[in-house]
């Protein structure tokens, strides 16, 4: 099975460095397998407040509050969670809150679960319709620089940005376990 363990660890480490460089202080998340390492690093870092959420829309509000309080944050979620955030994005959009979202994709590359396909296929369209700038990374070597660029446009230009991390990067889910 094609889970690329080594690469997965590597890109997460690089992305974490980028988040640290962007002075990210709050990391809100609903877990996804693709975010496992990033979440662990966030929890282990004393300068970062990890916020585990019950549902993704909470994260948009938390990061809005973080920015009001002078801190930058990031939201980690799976593409299925994008469907949960749409109305709350209106606040970030209207107030021009910087918003950095790292979205691990499902429902595309080699998807096994048909129930993931509708939201996965709609993710880009829906984010675009809500006014979010979309960056995509399908090559593990490009993820960190993509997140770096996204963080810049989010925090320097005050925009909502989603980095979609292709399912190809995370690898097929190992369904035999």
């Amino acid at each position: 099975m094609a889970t690329k363990k080594k690469k997965k660890t590597d890109w997460s480490k690089e992305v974490f460095k980028v988040l640290k460089k962007a002075d990210i202080r709050q990391i809100a998340y609903v877990p996804d397998a693709g975010h496992t390492s990033l979440i662990k690093m966030a929890v282990a870092d004393n300068a970062i407040k990890p916020v585990s959420l019950t549902s993704e829309q909470e994260g948009i509000a938390v990061l809005s509050g973080a920015w009001l309080g002078g801190e930058a944050g990031a939201l980690l979620m799976q593409s299925s969670g994008v469907g949960n955030v749409i109305n709350m994005l209106g606040m970030a959009n209207e107030c021009r809150f910087p918003l950095l979202m790292l979205v691990t994709m499902r429902g595309e590359w080699g998807e096994f679960n048909p129930w993931q396909v509708p939201m996965g296929q709609a993710t880009e369209t829906v984010l675009d319709a809500a006014g979010v700038i979309i960056h995509r990374a399908d090559d593990p070597a490009e993820i960190a620089e993509t997140v770096e660029a996204a963080a810049k446009i989010a925090f320097d230009s005050g925009r909502m940005v989603a980095v979609l991390i292709g399912q190809r990067v995370v690898g097929f889910k190992d369904w035999t376990k």
Partner: peptide
């Protein structure tokens, strides 16, 4: 725990 995504703690 979120068993399907890496056993992160739930609330």
């Amino acid at each position: 725990a979120y068993g399907a995504t890496g056993n992160q703690h739930t609330h």
